[in-house]
Design a protein around this nucleic acid. Sequence first.
DNA 1: AGAATAAAAGTGAGCAGACGCTCACTTTTG
DNA 2: CAAAAGTGAGCGTCTGCTCACTTTTATTCT
Lengths: 215, 215
Amino acid sequence: MKYMTANETFRKISEEKQNKIIEAALNEFSQYGYSDANINKIAERAGVSVGSLYKYFNDKQNLYQTIVNISSDTLQETLGRIIGENDDIFIIIEKIIGAIQEYARTHHKMFKLYNEMTAENNSELTWKTAGSVEGVTADLYASLIEKAQKQGLARKDFDPRYFAFFLDNLFVMLQFSYSCEYYKERLKMYVGENAIHDDALMCEQLIKFIKGAFC
Amino acid sequence: MKYMTANETFRKISEEKQNKIIEAALNEFSQYGYSDANINKIAERAGVSVGSLYKYFNDKQNLYQTIVNISSDTLQETLGRIIGENDDIFIIIEKIIGAIQEYARTHHKMFKLYNEMTAENNSELTWKTAGSVEGVTADLYASLIEKAQKQGLARKDFDPRYFAFFLDNLFVMLQFSYSCEYYKERLKMYVGENAIHDDALMCEQLIKFIKGAFC
DNA sequence: AGAATAAAAGTGAGCAGACGCTCACTTTTG
DNA sequence: CAAAAGTGAGCGTCTGCTCACTTTTATTCT
């Protein structure tokens, strides 16, 4: 169900109002992180009173959880669609890289939120939601690789679960490199100032790297 | 110079006292992150008064910077030593993986601190110290790969700077996977409960992956 | 050597500002 | 005219940091 973590009241208000609140909260949380995010500011930016906000969400944690869930669902939906298209593995990888590059521009706050969330120490809470997603992804990648091995598209002398892990590691770091200040700077150090804008070159090189590893 | 960011007073006190303060601060910062770290608690755990702490360090930021610098230096020193040994690239990679696995146990708080630091938004401050380190690493990896290309150890149809980037991405994620709660859980999802303890298998699989990509 | 004294180091109660959250109240809805 | 939705001043708490004060160390003088 949509916005499961929010209170009933929130689900009854107009979609426009919902969106304004979600946008304001995503803005604040992704920019300042959980602890430094200011609830009063979120309310002000969203054009609602703090009192109302606390009728929609039990507390700060609850609002944060809702935003994390929304982001997680949005990203997962895209990934699911791509993998469900039943292409061969290297086409899928290319599509995923393309999706990361596109999302880094249109939804970069969600990537940033994801980065902050994983750095937090009370991961137990956030793991319950984002964790299930990671589990599904892990299985999907592993079975894709296994299929590729059977089709002769990948060599057979490695553990598909480990290679799925390394593959997703490369994707996670690509997300960070496009969305988070620190990793943006780091990317520049490695491949130069304007690499951030040359999507095609990055995609080409990364696929070459992955293909090499698999074949 | 040692502890450059700290005040002169700090550099004059006994090494034992310095170490107690650094340990207490590293503990607090790595466990709770910058914002939620409590200065009063650090002082108490280190066995000094808050007043003294503020004679050693200008403010919270300053103490944090000092801890980040120390961690950064410690890790960089190890990496520099390994790369300086002039082995062929795959021996170096194996040694780096081994060092990550070892440090994940002996210095895991430093890795955690690094993860939190990179998620912070005021990266400009921390970039000044950690950033210079990343720059050096980037150059070292790239020239190592270039050398391998010339020696015929790696194929020549890729950009060494991009491959250096992907290589270090795999190392960074390995660090996180061994040290940070979220990524530990994620690693379990991918390769199973007891993969965290099977260092040899992880090393073997990762080298296989990297070797494939390079050759 | 020890007293006198100045400088440096150390202390912790408490100030000041920030912020999550409440609640007595008003407005809107059905 | 209830019931539900909305409001925002301000309460309570938390915490970075200060400052008036004490203790220790270093130096000078008799």
